[in-house]
Amino acid sequence: MPTQNKNESRRDFLKKSTALAALTIASPVLTKAGENDEKIAALFEQMPLRLEVNGVAHALSVEPRVTLLDLLREQLHLMGTKKGCDHGQCGACTVHVDGKRINSCLSLAVMNEGKKITTIEGLANGDKLHPMQEAFIKHDGFQCGYCTPGQIMSAVCCVKEGHANNAEEIREFMSGNICRCGAYPNIVDAIMEVKKGGQSL
């Protein structure tokens, strides 16, 4: 891939540039020369990002290549959202963006400027579990628990979207969330119960 090294060239260019040298001198917190170059070059490669996660506003600086999933897990340390495939093929990374369920592994973090993200950590109301969380426990809608946050986030939207009218429809509209332990029938039961309960989600 001939283009792959371009970024490194740009970094080298940045390191050598006088603008960078000036910045280095101007910054009192940066002391070691080599390290300074690295940190400042990194700054050039990042861009500002404002978003809200579980009701908390964040003003961040991120590389454009960082996915929403990796931002949540590795930078905000919200490990509830899971990485199962990293390619939009399993649903473990499902979160809500402005109320819609999406695969956070295929969304660049910078594409979520100004958006409201809800993860599994933001679903419960304090210690009071969300009805879907309650239903997953009651119907044992999981075993190992790894796909569970994605299943629950997806399930909440499945009901909200109006795709939980019968078992067959739920199965189809929950097929974007793979559960290798095979808890599917229990997941369907959990969603049916929440749908029947009619609580506001």
Partner: peptide, 21 residues
Amino acid sequence: DDRVDGVDKVTGKATYAAEHQ
């Protein structure tokens, strides 16, 4: 009858290998 680790698993608190800080 409920799993003793159920709440951890439905709230995202259960910590898997790569998730230790």
